[in-house]
C-alpha cells in the first residue's frame, strides 16, 4: 500500500520543529508504524537525507522504549497497544499519517521523534524502588503472599514505563505511572515497610514535575500494559492514608 507520512523533524532540544511530508510506497499492511518509519528511513538514506530519529528496542511490546504520537493519539489509533505493535492494516491505501513525538511539558524533544522521558526516572528515583535492607535472601515461603495479592501486584507491575499515559493526558499528569508503581510495591511484604515514606516522596516529585489529575481517563486508553484507572485513585488513596497515619 501507499501511505503519506507527515513526520515531525526537529534538530535538537529547543530548536524549531516542523512537519515533513514523504510518500512511502509498497509497504505491507501487516507491518507496524515503526516499520513504516524504518521504510521511510531507508528511502531517506538512499536519497542522501538525514533519517528520522526515533526510539525502539524490543519491538514486541515489553520494553517501553518506543512511543510516537500518530494523528494526535499516543502510540497510535488502537487502544492499549504500543507503537511497535500498531499495525498499518487499519489504514486505507493512500492515507496520511501525522507522526510526532510523545507530547507533554515534562517530555522535551531531544531530536525528531525522541523525547526525554527522564522525569519518569526521577519518580522512580524518588520512591519507585525498595530501599529497605532485606539481608540475605529468606526462605521462599518464610513470608507468604496470597495468590490474589501477588496477581494484583503483578498486574500493577506490568507498566513498561513508556510514558504514553503522560502524553495522552490533557493535563500532562503521570498518575497512572506513579499509581501503578505505588500499588505494585505497597502490596508486597518488604516494599510495604516503607509505604508511607514512598508515597510522600513520589507524590512530591509528581507535584513538581507533572500536572494534576482531572480524571480524563485518556491514560488508561493509551496504556499498552492495560494499567486500570484504579491506579490513579491509588495516588490519592496512598497519599491520604499516609497523611492520616502516625509517622514512624
Amino acid at each position: 500500500m501507499k501511505l503519506t507520512v507527515q513526520v515531525w523533524r526537529q534538530a535538537g532540544p529547543g530548536a524549531p520543529g516542523r512537519f515533513e511530508r514523504h510518500v512511502v510506497d509498497g509497504i505491507e499492511p501487516h507491518l507496524s508504524v515503526l516499520e513504516l518509519l524504518d521504510a521511510l528511513n531507508e528511502q531517506l538514506i538512499d536519497s542522501g537525507a538525514e533519517p528520522v530519529a526515533f526510539e525502539s528496542d524490543c519491538r514486541e511490546g515489553i520494553c517501553g522504549a518506543c512511543g510516537v504520537t500518530v494523528d494526535g493519539e499516543a502510540h497510535g489509533r488502537e487502544d492499549n497497544v504500543p507503537s511497535c505493535h500498531q499495525r498499518l492494516s487499519g489504514y486505507a491505501d493512500g492515507s496520511i499519517l501525522r507522526i510526532e513525538p510523545l507530547r507533554a511539558g515534562a517530555f522535551p524533544v531531544v531530536r525528531d521523534l525522541i523525547v526525554d522521558r527522564g522525569a519518569l526516572d526521577d519518580l522512580i528515583r524518588a520512591g519507585g524502588h525498595v530501599a529497605v535492607d532485606a539481608g540475605t535472601a529468606p526462605d521462599a515461603d518464610a513470608l507468604p503472599v496470597g495468590e490474589e495479592r501477588a496477581e494484583l501486584a503483578l498486574d500493577f507491575a506490568a507498566c513498561i514505563g513508556c510514558g504514553a499515559c503522560v502524553a495522552a493526558c490533557p493535563n500532562g499528569a503521570a498518575h497512572l505511572f506513579a499509581g501503578s508503581k505505588l500499588m505494585h510495591l505497597s502490596l508486597l511484604p518488604l516494599p510495604s515497610l516503607e509505604r508511607q515514606r514512598r508515597v510522600v516522596a513520589v507524590v512530591d516529585e509528581l507535584e513538581e514535575l507533572f500536572g494534576p489529575c482531572s480524571n480524563y481517563g485518556e491514560c488508561a486508553r493509551a496504556c499498552p500494559a492495560g494499567i486500570p484507572l484504579t491506579a490513579i485513585a491509588a495516588v490519592n488513596h496512598e497519599r491520604l492514608l499516609a497523611g492520616l497515619q502516625r509517622r514512624l
Partner: peptide
Amino acid sequence: IVWARGRRARGGHRVTLRGMRSWGAWLM
C-alpha cells in the same frame, strides 16, 4: 489552579479527547 496547572504541564500541545469520560472531564 488545577486547570491552570494542567494547561502548563501539557506544554501547549494539542490533545485528542476520546470517549465520554474524557469529554465529561473537559466539560467540568
